[in-house]
């Protein structure tokens, strides 16, 4: 069968010139094999032959390739950037999969079977039947301490993570606290030090969850994973324990005290509003009547 004939039989997606979920089958197999290895060796970065995607490197090409390899026609996809479904890059990626895979999409965390995210873990607890796909810019947690890939690979091989501890310790010596606020390094099952992607450290405790977590770094050609309930420990010191912090405010819209907040400048005087970064979490709370001090009196106003 020639390629042209195969294309005619392509699934009835809107973008029928391309294969289901855009990638060709051989590429998907290559990515799928890497995903299986990454699940078998939690926290280890599996090299994969990342393809050039029709979107720029650094804009989620790793996450998009992982999602494309994992998606089935029955999936419901949610895409968030900074916790929000309506940020432009999240919209763009969601549209890409609507077009190329024809899958259902949602903004409701609970309704999604696959969630692709950049920089956040949703507030709602994820379930065993869900998959969380992270977009990762720099997968190597040691990269900013040691620019050479040859060297960092050796460090992982020898489990030689002293450099990272020295860095964190220097922070404490200098600032009295660990000065890493996001992409806070973790140790997986007592073996690999892993970069959880640039999520705020507030999200780190959620990394131990029931859902499958897959991390895709397109430009850096790495895939890594956390199977459900994998032990994930944020690096710290006995006398300086890890602390998941957030702005010390309730959400101005829904009043939540337990969610990560965005800070907005709302007037020329520099007045501030704090609101949930997870837009679905916030909307769902407002829908059942929760109100913060800055909320509009009627829900219709927040459409």
């Amino acid at each position: 069968m020639t390629q042209i004939e195969q294309d005619k039989n392509a699934p009835d997606t809107v973008m029928s010139d391309y294969n289901f979920a855009y990638l060709d089958e051989q590429t998907k197999r290559m990515i799928r094999r890497a995903i299986l290895k990454s699940l078998a060796i939690p926290g280890y970065q599996v090299p994969f032959a990342s393809r050039e995607m029709p979107m720029p490197y650094g804009w989620g090409t790793g996450g998009v390739q992982v999602s494309a390899a994992v998606l089935t026609p029955d999936d419901t996809l949610k895409v968030i950037d900074q916790g929000a479904d309506d940020t432009t890059n999240a919209v763009s990626i969601r549209r890409f999969f609507e077009k190329t895979a024809g899958v259902a999409v949602t903004e409701a965390t609970a309704e999604a079977s696959i969630i692709q995210t950049r920089h956040r873990i949703p507030e709602a607890e994820l379930r065993e039947d869900q998959v969380l796909v992270y977009q990762v810019p720099i997968p190597e947690p040691l990269r900013f301490l040691e620019p050479s890939e040859v060297e960092t690979r050796k460090m992982h091989e020898l489990e030689e993570y002293g450099l990272m501890h020295v860095k964190l310790y220097e922070d404490i010596a200098q600032h009295g606290a660990i000065a890493t606020a996001y992409a806070y390094p973790v140790k997986v099952e007592g073996r690999y030090v892993m970069d959880p992607s640039p999520i705020p450290k507030f999200d780190n405790p959620k990394l131990e969850m029931a859902a499958i977590q897959l991390f895709g770094a397109g430009r850096e050609q790495r895939i890594y994973a956390l199977p459900p309930h994998t032990q994930v420990v944020s690096l710290d010191f006995e006398d300086y324990p890890f602390e998941a912090s957030k702005a010390d405010h309730p959400c101005g819209l829904c009043g939540a005290e337990d969610s990560y907040l965005d800070e907005l400048i709302v007037d020329d005087e520099g007045g501030r509003l704090f609101m949930c970064s997870d837009t679905d979490y916030c909307a769902a709370r407002q829908a059942v009547g929760h109100r913060g001090s800055d909320a509009s009196p009627t829900l219709e106003g927040v459409a």
Binding site: W59, Q82, G83, P137, A183, F202
Partner: peptide, 16 residues
């Protein structure tokens, strides 16, 4: 790609 991605939202990281 990587250079220009820094113009994407980084509210969350900046907030932290």
């Amino acid at each position: 790609g990587f250079l220009e991605h820094i113009k994407l939202p980084h509210y969350v990281d900046f907030q932290s």
